[in-house]
Design a binder for these strands. Structure first.
Lengths: 135, 135
DNA sequence: TCATACTGTAATAAAATATGTTACAAATGT
DNA sequence: ACATTTGTAACATATTTTATTACAGTATGA
C-alpha cells in the first residue's frame, strides 16, 4: 500500500495556490478532501519544515504559501513526501551464501535509482502553478 | 507499504535463469531468499499464468523458465506484479462540491500515467538476461 | 480580559494490507 | 507403496496507514 502523503500534500498546495492571499484553516482544507484535520496539519508541518508554506496560529489563523506556486516544482513536493520510487524489496534479508541472494537488493536498488532519476527529471519540469492551473 | 512481489519475482526468475536446465523446487528458491515456500509458489503461480515459467509436480518436480531469459523484459515482470507506479491517492473520496476535490484524482492519474509510460520504456529495454548477468 | 477559533502535537485506536504458517489433496518418480 | 513436490485454501500475525481524541498554546477581537 502506498501512503496518500504525496496526494494529500498536492491537494493542500493546490488549494493554497487557488487562494494565495488567504490563510486557510486545516478544517477548511480537510473539508475539501474529506480527511481528518489533524492529518492535514501533519502534512502542513512537513511543508513548513521545508519552508514551502507558513502558518499563523490562533483565531483566523491558517496556512498560506510562502513562495510563489511557479517557484515550487512537483519534484520538491515528491521528495518531501516520498522516500523514493521503488518497486519493492522482499521483507527478509536474503541468503548471503547464495550469489543471487547476496546481490539482489543492491541490483534492485540500482535499477530503482535509475527510475528515480528519470522520474525526478520529469517532475522537475512541472510547477505547482502548472498543476494547479488544470483545475 | 509496497509489497515485495516484484522483488520476489525477480529473485525467482534470476535463479531460474542461472539454472536454465533444472527444475528448481520452491523450497530451494525459498532458501535463497529466506522466505516461506508457499509464498514462492504463489508468485510462481502468477508467472505460470503468464506463461513465463512452467512447473512439474511430484517428486523431482519444480519450476523452470519456459522461454529464454533474453526474451523476457523487466517491463513484463513489472506488469505482472505491479498495478502501476503511482505516488498514491488519498484514501477517501474528495469533496465533489469543491473544484479541486472534484478533479484532483483525475489530474493525479494523468500525472501518474505519464510517469508509467516513461518507466515502462525504461524497463522494456532491460531483459531478464541483462539483469541476471549482473550476478 | 475573556470567549472563541485556530495551530501543534502526542497518544491511542481502528482499518487496511502484506507476510507467514499450517494443512492437506493431488501429482509423479523410484 | 513411498517419498517428494506442487497447488491452494484457510487462517494467523505483523506492519503500515489512517482516524480519533485530547489538550496545551497562541492570536483575535468583542
Amino acid at each position: 500500500m502506498i501512503s496518500g502523503k504525496f496526494a494529500i500534500t498536492i491537494h493542500i498546495l493546490t488549494l493554497l495556490t487557488k487562494f494565495p492571499n488567504d490563510f486557510l484553516s486545516s478544517e477548511f482544507i480537510a473539508g475539501s478532501m474529506n480527511l481528518n484535520p489533524v492529518l492535514v496539519r501533519k502534512e502542513i508541518a512537513n511543508l513548513k519544515a521545508h519552508h514551502i508554506v507558513e502558518s499563523k496560529e490562533g483565531k483566523n489563523g491558517g496556512t498560506k504559501l510562502s513562495k510563489k506556486a511557479s517557484a515550487i516544482t512537483l519534484k520538491e513536493i515528491f521528495e518531501l513526501t516520498f522516500d523514493n520510487i521503488n518497486l519493492g524489496y522482499a521483507k527478509n534479508q536474503p541468503n548471503p551464501d547464495c550469489p543471487v541472494g547476496k546481490k539482489v537488493n543492491q541490483n534492485l536498488a540500482e535499477l530503482y535509482a535509475d527510475i528515480n532519476e528519470k522520474v525526478g527529471l520529469q517532475l522537475k519540469k512541472i510547477t505547482l502553478e502548472d498543476f494547479s492551473s488544470q483545475f
